[in-house]
Every structure is written in structure tokens, then in C-alpha cells.
Simulated scan of single mutants.
Amino acid sequence: MNIFIPLIVGVLVGYLLRNRLKFNMDRPMSVTLLLLIFFMGVEAGRVEINAFDLLIYSLVFASLTILGSLVVAFLGVRE
């Protein structure tokens, strides 16, 4: 589902009812955000991955990124 359609509709409703609507939205938004985070965690927990391989790939990628940045920095200093 396209997320922009409900967003635009919400903006329009909020704009049209901005002086009439005196409802505090802090609590419903907090509950909705916590439910969203919970369901994202449930979905992430369903994914089957090999954590050790992922750790090795992440460490290699991070090391190569740092090494590449250092090489570019040293080349920039020498010029």
C-alpha cells in the first residue's frame, strides 16, 4: 500500500480540523509506535539467518571501509 495516500489524507484532515479538533494525540501515537516496533521485532525474529556468517561479513565490510577511508585520507594529505 502506498504510504503517501494516507499521509496526504491525514494532513488534509488535520488542516481542515485544526481549529475544531481539541484531542491530544500523544498517547494514541505512542501506543501505535510501540505496536509498530513490536511487530517489526516479531517479523525480524521470523527471519532465519546464520548469525556467525553475518558477523564475519559485517566485520570484513567494516574493516575494508575503514581501510579505504584511511587510504583516501592519506592520499589527500600527501597532495
Rank of each mutant, 00 (worst) to 15 (best):
N2I: 01
N2F: 01
I3M: 11
I3H: 08
F4R: 01
F4M: 10
I8W: 05
I8N: 01
L12K: 02
L12F: 08
V13I: 14
G14S: 10
Y15A: 05
Y15F: 07
L16Q: 04
L16H: 03
R18G: 03
R20Q: 08
R20T: 05
L21K: 03
L21V: 05
L21C: 06
F23E: 11
F23D: 04
N24K: 06
N24L: 02
N24Q: 12
M25E: 07
D26Q: 09
D26H: 09
P28T: 04
P28F: 04
M29I: 12
M29S: 10
S30T: 07
L34Y: 15
L34V: 15
L35P: 01
L35F: 12
L35Q: 11
I37S: 06
I37E: 01
F38G: 13
F38A: 15
F38Y: 15
M40Y: 11
G41T: 11
G41V: 08
G41R: 13
V42Q: 05
E43Q: 12
A44F: 15
A44Q: 15
A44N: 15
A44M: 15
G45I: 12
R46M: 12
R46G: 13
V47F: 11
E48L: 00
E48I: 00
E48P: 02
I49D: 01
I49G: 01
I49F: 13
N50R: 00
N50M: 00
A51D: 05
A51M: 13
A51R: 10
A51W: 12
A51F: 14
A51L: 14
F52N: 10
D53G: 00
D53L: 10
D53K: 11
L54I: 04
L54Y: 06
I56F: 10
I56M: 12
Y57T: 00
S58T: 13
L59N: 13
F61I: 04
A62E: 07
S63A: 15
L64T: 03
T65C: 10
I66A: 10
L67K: 08
L67W: 11
G68K: 00
G68V: 04
S69Q: 05
S69N: 09
S69Y: 03
L70T: 10
L70V: 08
L70W: 12
V71H: 06
V71M: 12
V72S: 09
V72T: 13
A73Q: 07
F74W: 09
F74N: 07
F74C: 08
L75T: 09
G76S: 13
